[in-house]
Every structure is written in C-alpha cells, then in structure tokens.
Design a protein around this nucleic acid. Structure first.
Length: 333
DNA sequence: CCCTGGCAGCCGAAGTTCTT
DNA sequence: AAGAACTTCGGCTGCCAGGG
C-alpha cells in the first residue's frame, strides 16, 4: 500500500495542501471547523508527516547525534549516564530527536552504520561528542565536513572548535588543597587512562597544589574499575603510609572504601577519601562521600544551548565554556 | 482582520536526450 | 557506445496573493 501524503489528505478533505500543512503544524489562521475536519481525515487514514520530505524542504532534520565511546564501555561511568540522560531530556524539550551513536576517536570513519554518514547526508543536524582524545578522528571529520558539533570536554588539537568543559585543572587543584588544609600529608590520586585530556588536566592541578604545599603525593593513571581501585588501595596501604585517596569517579570510591575497612582503618579518621562527580548515590555510601561536583544540570544546559545556537547561526565563531567545580562536603574527609 | 490557496524550491538520484 | 548535459521526481512549507 502506498504511503498517505499531504496531497492525499488535501484531496480527501477538499482543502488545499497548504491548509492541511497548517493544520499539521498547528499554525494559526485555520477555522476551527476546518481544523477538526482535516484532523479527522488524518486520523482515519493514519497519515503522518514524511520527515524526509520535511527535512528536504526545511534543510533541517531536528535530529542530533550523541557520540559516545564504543570501546566495550571501558571508560563509561555513571557520570556519563547522568549527562546523557540530562542532555537527551533537554534536547527533546527543545523539539529535537536524539540518536546515540557508539564510535571511537581512534578508529577511522568507515562504518556507514554510525552517525557520521547520517550527518554528512543531512539526515541529522549536529552532534555532541563525548570522550574526545587528542588527534581524535571524529573531531577531524566533523570539522572537515562543516557539521555543527560541540565537545563535552576539552579540544587540544584545534582552536576553532566549540566545547563545554569543567575546569579540570582546578578540580585537581582544589581537591588537593582541600585535603591538605584538612591536614592530610600523604595523598594518592587515582585516575582513568592518560589518553583522555581530562585526566591529564586533573593530575596537573593536583601535582601543582601538592608541590606548592610540599606534600607527599603520587598519581596513578589507568585505574578504571572499582576492582582496580580496590586492589591498588590494598597494595598501597600494605607498603606505604597513605592518609588520603583522591579518586576520579565517585563510583570507584567503593573499591577504596572496602580495602580501607579490610585493613582495619577508619574513614576519615585514619584515611580520607575524596571523590569527583558528586553522584546521587555518593550521599548513601558509608560514611557519605565528600566529592567534587560537576553540576550536570548546568553542564548539559550549556552544551544543549551551545549546540542549538551553532546549528542555527551561519557564522561559526567558536565558543568555549569552562565550568567551575565545587566541593560538596560530607563525611569522608 | 480572518481564512484559504498557488507556487517555487529544498537536494541528490535516476531517467532522458543530446553530443561526440 | 559512452559520456555530457539537461530534466524530472519526491513531500513539504515560506512567501505572497486574494476573497470575504
């Protein structure tokens, strides 16, 4: 059976295509009775707007693609979850459709099942990138093809891209200073893989604060799982005197909590734990986890606003928004 | 002012005709 | 016979015109 088009509805109702279009789009200046009649025929014939045709006409699909890291979910944490959820809700509220596309910054763009071909073919208007690495091939591709996109995080390769980022240097810095001011003198910082810009920035801020105050410290990259943190915490507590763990990614603090307890130590009397992300669940750890907040709401708000602005304006002056982290004090430090 | 209708043109693929 | 150069096609809406 052939698809019902706006022309069919026009013929069936006896009104013009234009009037039907107005009804579909809830445009003003249609007599109530006309609107009702047309809506009834639309219902009877199960008509819905052809999105392809509409996109062709408007040069706009009102679809946004969210690129997330594909690599076995290895670097995917709860913070991503919260951010995605928040961004999706905000885009939907603004009338955009959302497509999730797993991809990776290290692979070449060759797979036509991913979002890149949709964007290049005009089947989506813009993109939001997560987990950007240096020399990210996805960023190169979007830039080269003049596709509006923003990065969640920092771009070190280009100066003309737009992004929203947390001041991750400051995250490391204020985290270290907070621990130091509370009297801790031997601090360990656990982070994910070094390839991600965010981790290097955090480590740099941390190290500079520790040096400034002459405090013993060490940084461990590439510890991405709760299990990894658990094992490393055990090991460190067995052979060194550590009195504070600073952990990138609240959910991983669970691993440290258990190792610390198993060593017969108390949080925060013997050992402090400071997280990053301020996840909703962190409040219910025992003791409640002190954490550095990323403000997911504000973050996603800025990201969505920036992208929509980019998709609608012709001139593309890059915008870079840096958010300030804030410590949420609970009872683990 | 309120309501309605006509038409161009969005864009790339496929089809058609013209040129060598 | 093969390539170049046009034309058509698809569904929809912004702009403009026109009747009451």
């Amino acid at each position: 059976m052939k698809k019902v088009t706006i022309t069919d509805i026009a013929k069936l109702t006896g009104y013009s295509i234009k009037t039907v279009s107005r009804v579909i789009n809830n445009a003003p200046n249609v007599k109530e009775e006309t609107r009702r009649k047309i809506l009834q025929v639309i219902e009877e014939h199960n008509y819905s707007v052809n999105l392809l045709a509409k996109a062709l006409r408007n040069s706009e699909t009102r679809t946004v693609i969210l690129f997330i890291d594909r690599r076995k979910g290895k670097y995917w944490n709860e913070w991503h979850d919260l951010m995605l959820k928040s961004i999706m809700v905000k885009l939907k509220d603004r009338g955009y459709k959302v497509i999730l596309s797993p991809s990776s910054g290290e692979e070449t763009i060759s797979n036509d099942t991913d979002g890149f071909h949709l964007l290049k073919s005009g089947l989506a208007d813009g993109a939001i990138m997560f987990d950007v690495i240096s020399k990210d091939c996805r960023v190169k591709y979007l830039r080269a093809n003049n596709i509006p996109f923003i990065i969640i995080g920092k771009d070190m390769d280009f100066t003309d891209t737009s992004f929203v980022d947390l001041d991750n240097y400051l995250v490391g810095f204020i985290g270290a200073e907070y621990l130091i001011n509370k009297g801790y003198k031997n601090i360990v910082f656990f982070l994910g893989p070094k390839v991600f810009n965010v981790n290097r920035d955090r480590a740099q801020g941390f190290e500079e604060a520790c040096k400034k105050h002459g405090v013993t410290h060490s940084v461990f990259y590439g510890i991405s799982t709760i299990k990894g943190i658990y094992e490393k915490t055990h090991e460190l507590l067995s052979r060194a005197t550590v009195d504070a763990f600073f952990i990138s990614g609240d959910e991983k603090a669970l691993g440290a909590y258990r190792a610390i307890r198993e060593k017969g130590l108390k949080i925060p009397e013997d050992v402090a734990v400071l997280g990053i992300d301020n996840l909703p669940s962190s409040e219910y750890m025992y003791p409640p986890l002190t954490s550095i907040d990323q403000n997911v709401e504000k973050f996603s708000d800025q990201a969505v606003n920036l992208l929509i602005e980019m998709m609608h304006s012709k001139e593309k002056t890059p915008k870079r928004i840096i958010l300030t982290p804030r410590i949420v004090e609970r009872q683990s430090v």
